[in-house]
Write a protein that binds this DNA or RNA. Structure first.
Lengths: 240, 240
DNA sequence: TTTTCTGACTGGTATAGACAACTAGTCATA
DNA sequence: TATGACTAGTTGTCTATACCAGTCAGAAAA
């Protein structure tokens, strides 16, 4: 609410967070007008340009909409938020109202094969972690997931993989996830997969391959997933 | 190149376009540093803040990247461009280097059933177009596509559907596409689908359902597609 | 030779003010 | 009753300036 002029955190950012907080807490409903730029400037005792910088960022993030001559309004649809939602399985399932769980099948350090090494932009035979997990929603097996992470990039502990998500460990190490590219294709379950997923052999499955990149441009992981086709739908929003 | 201070077009926008032009023409290669903000300001005889506004927009659009203490650089990967690429089958296949084609199976006006009416936000039994097409890439059948469009929204001509894309007809009618939500799931081909797609019955297929919305918020179409799983991979980029 | 420091560059943050463009209401006039 | 002029309020554009914070090369010191 109050901003700290002595803080090293930029003023515009503090204002940004203050506005976001009010929106998230529901104090400013979607569609309603927020204070004018001049009001903000006066209240926070900053210049109007600083307020504009904060508001601009929120407009770009899809939180607010400006209308010349009228004011600045809380965006109705929060498409932007989920639009590019690069979420983990855990977040994804929570959003759908399921109880997510994860069963660690194996965790080991192996040498990268040619294909994986190329995608992770490391040398052939460099060490990588291989994490195999079964993903559950409401205790029903949903997917088999194999993750490959370069060992030279980050040190992973098996104990942490088990309860927390990989992404939170990455963020704690000071890395930041930037973007991911995914490919999806339909296939049919092989024998071993059908056993684990508790479906018939030959049943439809969705193969998802994901490559995740950090803000420094380095690849963080390659993930191969096999989702059961009868229970999992992949949802996505796109903007023209 | 030269900007017009008497023009009603904002200076920052003129600068934006000038920079974009240089990038698109390849005068500034990706990865290379562009002029410093102070240089721009001096050359164009505007204030540095105005230059910053232009550059900020281009950074948000993914054209440029700033690095404190170093300079501003042309982005290597144009992630943003394809990031949210809501593309048609035609655009999609061209981008992959295939020759796209489309075979119109049927075009008729029918009454919307309950489910379609709900998604299109129209009344039950309102008239809709039903367009069935087979999509080909390099003359190989790739997908069966069924599109539903409210008849009250736009008048469609069969002759135009055949050669051009639906989207271009929509744009010509003065409507603008805003965003779409898609769901993807794996399934297996039914008898009729396997015949059309020239695959075995029970072979894996990718079911894609798309709902497209216009800038005025109204739903434009619902599309049900069946892609053959052995030939089609769905690619997507996402940002955290 | 190696290390340290300084200076000149880069973008990042912030100010105070000006005027333009647009919206919506008020009020006087035809 | 309508219409047009005015006015107060909004965001949009733009200026000129100041200082901060990284980066890097070359000068100065060890």
């Amino acid at each position: 609410m109050i901003i700290d002029k002595t803080s090293p955190v930029p003023l515009y950012y503090q204002i940004e967070e203050a506005i976001k907080l009010k929106i998230d807490k529901g104090e400013w409903e979607s569609g309603s007008m927020i204070s004018s730029e001049r009001e903000f400037a006066e209240n926070y005792e900053v210049s109007r340009m600083t307020v504009r910088q904060a508001i601009n960022n929120l407009v770009n993030d899809g939180y607010l909409t400006r209308r010349k001559g009228k004011g600045t309004f809380v965006s109705g649809k929060k498409i932007e938020q989920k639009l590019l939602g690069l979420t983990s399985f855990t977040e994804d399932m929570k959003a759908r109202g399921y109880k997510p769980a994860s069963k660690l099948v194996s965790f080991q350090t192996i040498q990268a094969n040619h294909q994986i090494a190329k995608v992770l932009e490391i040398s052939h035979n460099n060490e990588i972690y291989e994490i195999k997990r079964v993903r559950l929603a409401n205790d029903v097996p949903m997917a088999i997931e194999t993750t490959f992470v370069p060992a030279q990039l980050i040190h992973l502990q098996e104990s942490h993989i088990q309860d927390g998500s990989l992404y939170s460990q990455v963020e704690q190490a000071g890395f930041h996830i930037d973007y991911a590219t995914q490919s999806l294709e339909a296939s049919i379950a092989r024998e071993k997969e059908s056993e684990i997923l508790e479906i018939a052999k030959g049943a439809p499955v969705l193969l998802i391959q994901r490559q995740t990149y950090l803000t420094n441009g380095k690849p963080l992981e390659v993930v191969h997933s096999v989702y059961r086709g009868d229970r999992y739908k992949f949802m996505i929003d796109m903007k023209r």
